[in-house]
C-alpha cells in the first residue's frame, strides 16, 4: 500500500492540508478556493505505522490493541471505558484511580488515599492506601506502605529501604531492604544484597542467594491450606 501524501498550501488563506500523492487539483478545506496542486506542493510526507501495544479489558479480559500513546479506549466486547493514563501522585492527590497505566507515588510528604488500581505501581514515599497492581508493584527509595498491597509481582528495588504491613503476592523479589509484619507469597527470592525481615513469612518456595539476608519466622504451606485465600 502506498501511504505517500503531500502537503498542499492554499495560496488564498495560507491553510495547509494533506492530499494523496498524484492529485492534480483540489479545494481548500478552510476557504473553499480552488487550488492547482502543482503550484502549491510543500513536501511529501511518508506516514509510518504508529507503535501499538496490547492491553486487557479490566472487565472481560478481552485483549485489545491500542496505539502506544493512547490515553483511553473502549472495550469492543463489553464497551467498558478503559483509562490508559499514567499518573504521578503526591500528597493531596487523594482520588480513587483505576487505570491500565502506571501510577507513581513520590514526594516527601505522606500520601493518604483510598484505593489505587493500576498495571504498575511505584511506591517511593510513605503511602496509606489500598493498592492493587495488575502486573507489578515496585518499592523504590524509602517507599513505605500502611495498607494492603496485592500484585502478581512485588519488587524491592536495589538500594531502597521499604516498609509494609502485609504483602500478598505470588512472587516477591527482594534486591533492596524491606521490613514487614507479614508476607504471604508463593515464591520469595532474596537476591545478593537484598535484606528481608518479617515477623511472619508464609510461602511455598524460597531462595536466599549468597549475600542476601532473611530474618523471621518462616512457614511453608500448600495452597490447599488456603492461607493465601483466607488471610
Amino acid at each position: 500500500m502506498n501511504n505517500a501524501s503531500i502537503q498542499v498550501h492554499c495560496p488564498s488563506c495560507q491553510h495547509q492540508q494533506t492530499e494523496p500523492e498524484g492529485v492534480i487539483s483540489t479545494n481548500c478545506r478552510a476557504c473553499g478556493s480552488y487550488i492547482r496542486v502543482s503550484d502549491a506542493i510543500l513536501k511529501p510526507v511518508i506516514k509510518s505505522p504508529k507503535a501499538t501495544r496490547t492491553i486487557e479489558c479490566i472487565h472481560c479480559q478481552t485483549p485489545i490493541r491500542v496505539v502506544e500513546t493512547a490515553l483511553s479506549s473502549i472495550c469492543p466486547n463489553c464497551s467498558t471505558h478503559l483509562n490508559l493514563q499514567s499518573y504521578k501522585l503526591t500528597a493531596g492527590d487523594d482520588a480513587n484511580i483505576n487505570t491500565l497505566g502506571t501510577v507513581s507515588i513520590q514526594g516527601r510528604k505522606r500520601y493518604d488515599g483510598n484505593e489505587i488500581q493500576a498495571s504498575r505501581i511505584e511506591i517511593g514515599c510513605k503511602v496509606s492506601a489500598r493498592l492493587i497492581a495488575r502486573e507489578e508493584a515496585i518499592f523504590s527509595h524509602h517507599g513505605s506502605l500502611d495498607g494492603k498491597l496485592e500484585a502478581p509481582k512485588i519488587s524491592i528495588a536495589p538500594k531502597s529501604t521499604a516498609k509494609a504491613r502485609l504483602l500478598l503476592t505470588p512472587f516477591l523479589e527482594v534486591e533492596g531492604e524491606i521490613l514487614c509484619d507479614q508476607i504471604r507469597a508463593k515464591k520469595i527470592v532474596v537476591r545478593h544484597k537484598g535484606n528481608l525481615s518479617a515477623k511472619r513469612i508464609f510461602c511455598e518456595e524460597i531462595i536466599v542467594d549468597d549475600g542476601g539476608v532473611l530474618r523471621g519466622r518462616l512457614t511453608t504451606f500448600n495452597l490447599e491450606q488456603q492461607i493465601m485465600l483466607n488471610p
Binding site: I207, D209, D210, G211, G212, R215, T220
Partner: peptide, 22 residues
Amino acid sequence: IRSLTLKVENGAKVHADVQIGT
C-alpha cells in the same frame, strides 16, 4: 535455621525461625 544461603523447594514443610545472611 541459621545459614549463609537458603533454598526451600515447593513441597517442603518448614516451620522455623530463620536467620540467613552473610
